[in-house]
Design a protein around this nucleic acid. Structure first.
Length: 109
DNA sequence: CCCTGATTCGC
DNA sequence: GCGAATCAGG
């Protein structure tokens, strides 16, 4: 089997489509995933190792240590409908008070 | 253990 | 240039 333009085209399409080498190989037929990867590598695909050793993406985003309690106060759509706004506990959407309410597992009435 | 891609090696 | 074998990571 030789790599014709149509095969390379399909290779690129499938590869770019997120297909795995095994699926591309199966799709093309007559080739193994190694052949696909090998060809892809020769084409210059794969995740280029040359001239791009580092990917400079230093996105520093400060995350709030705490967030406002999202406990709804009042009725949705209501003018005075608002959220608690109190300091929520870490990793939880509610403040301590409402967190206890939200996670009320059992208890009688 | 299975899978993935990446690289290396012989043809 | 081709693909298998082999390497390395998940």
């Amino acid at each position: 089997m030789s790599w014709t333009e149509e095969r390379i085209e399909k290779l690129r399409k499938l590869w770019g489509s997120g297909k795995t080498a095994a699926e591309i190989a199966d799709e093309l037929g007559g080739v193994t995933r190694n052949a696909v990867i090998g060809k892809a590598n020769r084409l210059g695909l794969s995740t280029k190792t040359t001239t791009a050793a580092a990917a400079p993406k230093p996105k520093k985003k400060v995350v709030p240590a705490h967030r406002a309690c999202q406990w709804p106060i009042g009725h949705p759509g209501e003018q005075d409908f608002h959220f608690c706004g109190d300091e929520a506990v870490p990793s939880k959407p509610y403040c301590l008070k409402h967190c206890n309410m939200a996670y009320q597992s059992k208890d009688n009435s």
